[in-house]
Design a protein around this nucleic acid. Structure first.
Lengths: 137, 137
DNA sequence: CTCTATGCAAAATATTTGCAAGGGA
DNA sequence: TCCCTTGCAAATATTTTGCATAGAG
């Protein structure tokens, strides 16, 4: 599953626009962290992002990654994808996601969401922001 | 949403049967932990379970709760419901079903699974044992 | 009797916070 | 200049592990 260059552009542009609108400084670290998520189909977690950026920013700290992820979430730029028994992953794609968890090996796979699944827009009077369908194999 | 007495019986019986089949001792703590989940529609998390059992078993340790939850999961007796930014909750309902997570309050609700959702029976050559659809509000 | 479970304490992980210095707009 | 951000270190929080003992089957 690959992300198209167009889709990546949309995500990055959205990130820059939001930063501008909220008058938030756009630092190299921030951009790199968001980009790491927006350009990846691996749904990286905190540790993966930290390790990946370590080469580009040798002095980057884990706290910076945590702080930025939290900020991005609050800004609605990304979504935390919880995976049972695993560290949460992050994704800049806001539509529904599906995962298949191999309960024996612990591996997590991306799978296509059923075409016939139409999500309710609201539940209990609240807007559905995101949905996660998890299969256990 | 309340759980019917019949449903609770089924869950507890399943728990006892599995323990017998696997020749696992059935201790009071274990039973209490499973029961706390099986009889609750609140989907308690580790801390809630621990606090709840503290009165019945003043010397129970958090480690025991963790160990048993992990064991129950491996036995397929319950399912972890991940909640973004919050501690995971647990659920003893094993059919394919859906949850709605209020990301602001952390509340977890049972909701009806869309009728039009037809799940694949197999993914990547492995049988789908269970599936969980989680909405984030 | 055998094997798993329990509970304690310690260790390992994971996440958050405070604060001084640095750097975008 | 004005804030926000960074990175370090320390503080917390969370989860796991080792081990001696207790207890179920």
């Amino acid at each position: 599953m690959k992300i198209s260059p167009q889709e990546i552009s949309v995500r990055l542009e959205n990130f820059r626009k939001t930063s501008r609108d909220k008058r938030l400084p756009l630092t190299p670290q921030k951009s790199a962290i968001f980009q790491a998520i927006a350009t990846s189909c691996e749904h990286p977690g905190v540790t993966e992002i930290y390790k990946q950026l370590k080469s580009e920013f040798p002095s980057i700290s884990l706290a910076t990654v945590y702080k930025n992820l939290k900020k991005f979430e609050n800004l609605g730029l990304l979504v935390e994808i919880p995976v049972p028994g695993k560290a949460p992953r992050y994704d800049a794609k806001l539509e529904i996601h599906s995962h298949a968890v191999d309960t024996a090996s612990g591996c997590v796979y991306d799978v296509e969401t059923p075409k016939n699944l139409s999500l309710p827009k609201e539940i209990l009077g609240k807007k559905v922001k995101h949905a996660n369908l998890i299969y256990y194999l």
